[in-house]
């Protein structure tokens, strides 16, 4: 069922920019179009490119914000979330916790 939804209507998660748009909905209550525009602006892409896995994988690699197939040396997990928080100008709870425990 998850896969069917993902194919039928999903943004694509970390393959594209779905996780980033979701974060803006969760943290700023942005409606879908506003969240897409905000994320596209921060990534420097067109809104319609947000769900293009070819373009988005390049962008994600360049910005080091986590990829669906992260290569050696690419930011993963918490590392990527540090960069996501900075890029989207939002607080990510787990990133804040990580900072408070390590600094």
């Amino acid at each position: 069922m998850v896969i069917s939804h993902a194919l039928a209507s999903g943004m694509g998660g970390v393959r594209t920019a779905g996780d980033l748009v979701a974060r803006m909905q969760m943290t700023e209550n942005m409606r879908l179009d506003e969240a897409k525009e905000y994320v596209a602006g921060k990534l420097g892409v067109d809104v319609k490119e947000l769900t293009d896995p070819v373009i988005m994988d390049e962008v994600r690699k360049e910005l080091n914000i986590g990829r669906v197939q992260p290569g050696a040396g690419n930011a993963k997990g918490m590392e990527a979330k540090f960069n996501v928080a900075k890029l989207l100008d939002i607080k990510i709870n787990s990133v804040e916790k990580f900072k408070s425990k390590t600094s």
Binding site: V2, H5, L7, S9, G10, M11, G13, G18, L32, T51
Partner: peptide, 21 residues
């Protein structure tokens, strides 16, 4: 058999209970 949205009309997918499904 399968119908999908037009490109550009995708939305955010949240899945409840994911980690036990």
């Amino acid at each position: 058999k399968f119908v999908s949205v037009e490109t550009g009309n995708e939305l955010v997918l949240t899945f409840d209970e994911g980690s036990v499904k």
